[in-house]
Amino acid sequence: MTQLLQLFANPLVYLLVALIAILTFIALNGLILVYVERKVAGFIQRRPGPFEVGPHGLLQPLADALKLVGKQLVVPRDADRILFWAAPLLSFAPVAVCLLPIPFGPHLVGLNVNLGVLLVLAFSGLNVLALCLAGWGSNNKYALLGAARAVAQSVAYEIPLLLSVLCVAFTSGSLNFAEITASQTHGLLSWNVFTQPVAFLIFFVSALAETNRAPFDLPEAESELTAGFHTEYSGMGFGLFFLAEYSYMIVVCAVASVLFLGGWSGPFLSGHWWMLGKIYALILAMMWFRWTYPRVRFDQLLNLCWKWLIPLSLINLMATALIINLVR
């Protein structure tokens, strides 16, 4: 037993276990979120949603996953085979790393690093590259248009996202998720959402755009681009993109709840329940937005970012810096 514990103390083994746990969480979460998304869509449109497979359609995502796994993998003619198959892998792989430095509980951290925020932002940026490769490698006009949109959108929205994260980093004086959480454990009012409400709003809007969720789902706009960058993907190629999209939702919501909503801090329940509750509340809000708002036009999307979010976040950042200096 002690030997086993010693083995566990080895950082490499610990990391491996954490990665496996995270991948399990991501897979389970994909199944749950598909179901929840379809149920939310159904209830908002006042229909039952998936209902036939299992009690209340609970087994529907499992059936869908089996179908996706069993499908033939098709590569379009004249497509770049290597890029075409690299793209879904590249889209999905960084997700595990993104969840590593996030504290799900007081002691439930995969990798406690000083620059956790930077790590997440850097690795989530890789997703754009994946979408770009998918669009280019598919040899399809819709996919290429989707990829072009994805790049323009992600590059634009990364700026306000980073600036709003910087505000939090300024106030808590750290880029370590654990320390940022620790600075918010003094009751509800110590949460950053109350000291930085504008930054939270900007972060959430940018996060919606970064994860390509409606109303900013232009890279895959079904009604204009058939399916955008993943038009040509079937089977698990599509499945990986799908899983990656839901996993990035988890990532941004986890980051948002750590940075702004106090992470695992909360009364009565253990930390990880509070963390999960906050993450899923934010995800439910994202789904609610998706089934409420129509998709924005591309010029509206970029105008919103360059004319509103970036100046607002800059002003917010400067005001934060000023106030911090005055208080000191």
Partner: peptide, 28 residues
């Protein structure tokens, strides 16, 4: 105009939020 637009977003959420809580109208 911006504030009005932001308010309209909240109104939209209210509409779908209300519909979410109502029973189904489709026939099963």
């Amino acid at each position: 105009k911006t504030l009005k637009g932001l308010w309209s977003l909240i109104v939209g959420l209210k509409v779908t939020g209300k519909e979410f809580c109502k029973p189904w109208i489709t026939v099963h």
